[in-house]
Computed example of a mutant assay.
Amino acid sequence: MASDDPRTLVSTEWLAAHLNDPDLRILDASWHMPDSDRDSHTEYTEGHIPGARFFDIDEISDQRSALPHMAPPVEKFISRMRAMGIGDGHQVVVYDSLGMFSAPRVWWTFKLMGKLDIAVLDGGLPKWKAEGRALEDLPPMVRDRHMTVQRQAHLIKDVSQVASASKLGDWQILDARSAERFRGEVEEPRPGLRSGHIPGSLNLNYRDVLNPDATMKDEAALREAFEKAGVDLSKPVITTCGSGVTACILSLALERLGHHKHAVYDGSWTEWGMYPDLKVEKG
């Protein structure tokens, strides 16, 4: 089991022990692919970890963009967090209903906003439920709390920066999609996208940094997974995936290894695969 760290990852045991801390805030950041036939908010209302607020990844985003759930503007993030009663001085724990899928995206979003006291719940809601821990279906009592934000621009990359990295090789580009999608052997789940990967990029499926119960692997196993994928852990990394969600799992894993020079390509393959003038590799 990975060790507890309130800035990266905490266990269900840690959360249970701190559940009644006055400055703890819990977020349910469950999100599912559009074709999954699941409604995250409905599932949240039916049962969630006591005190959890629902973080809507699609709504708390930059909706001026045609791309899905792009990082929110600072002002929108502050507004939504204050309305949820989350602010300065709070320790935040975020989880999702798949164990380790969308929660790291919210962890990264908080880091992007300069908020460091946030951790992902290791194993998420499935592990919490499997251990017979308490759930509730009541909305939490919310009190407005001031929040100070300082956006960390170095944690995010746009398409031009990724294209430069692809050409120059000064940043490693690491794709969290499955090997079949990376190699271009299957169609993309989002219609209209080309198949393949960013030229020069490496592939490490996000599942390969997780245990079968969706907890994160320990440090030795994480290091082995990255090195097996060809990643040089002494050099900077841009993580990417289908739409910027599972890329954040790799970013969380890098942070667990003490590798702090990493950034997320927010548009990911949804953006890159859309434009015919951007080169694509297969195989």
Rank of each mutant, 00 (worst) to 15 (best):
T45C: 14
H262L: 10
D266E: 07
K228Q: 15
R7A: 04
K279R: 13
T240Q: 04
S30W: 01
S195C: 10
V94A: 05
S268Q: 04
D266G: 01
H146Q: 14
D62R: 03
P139T: 12
G47P: 02
E185V: 11
V92N: 01
K279N: 11
W14N: 01
Y95K: 03
M274C: 10
D4L: 02
A71E: 09
V142G: 10
P50C: 06
D4C: 06
A83E: 15
W108A: 04
G196S: 05
P199K: 10
E271S: 05
V264P: 01
T215M: 10
S166V: 12
H32W: 08
G124N: 06
N203S: 14
A220M: 14
P276E: 15
L15M: 06
L125H: 05
P276Q: 13
P6Q: 08
Q63Y: 05
W272Q: 02
H90Q: 14
I249A: 03
I198D: 01
G85L: 00
P189K: 07
S65F: 12
D39T: 08
D28P: 12
R82N: 12
P276D: 15
D37Q: 14
L155R: 02
R194S: 07
F101Y: 15
V106D: 02
K217C: 05
H48K: 05
R151V: 11
P139N: 08
A16E: 12
E185R: 12
I198R: 01
G132V: 02
H259P: 08
L233W: 01
D37T: 08
G244I: 01
E188C: 14
D266F: 00
E43D: 14
Y95M: 02
S11I: 01
S164Y: 11
L155M: 13
A16N: 11
L204N: 00
M33L: 15
L9S: 03
G283Q: 14
V74D: 15
P73V: 03
G51K: 09
L174E: 04
I86Y: 05
M141D: 15
Y44D: 04
H18E: 02
P73Y: 10
H146F: 11
G267L: 04
E46T: 07
E43I: 02
D232C: 07
Y265R: 01
V245G: 07
R183H: 15
D232P: 07
P126E: 06
Y265L: 02
A263K: 00
A220L: 14
V142T: 15
D28I: 13
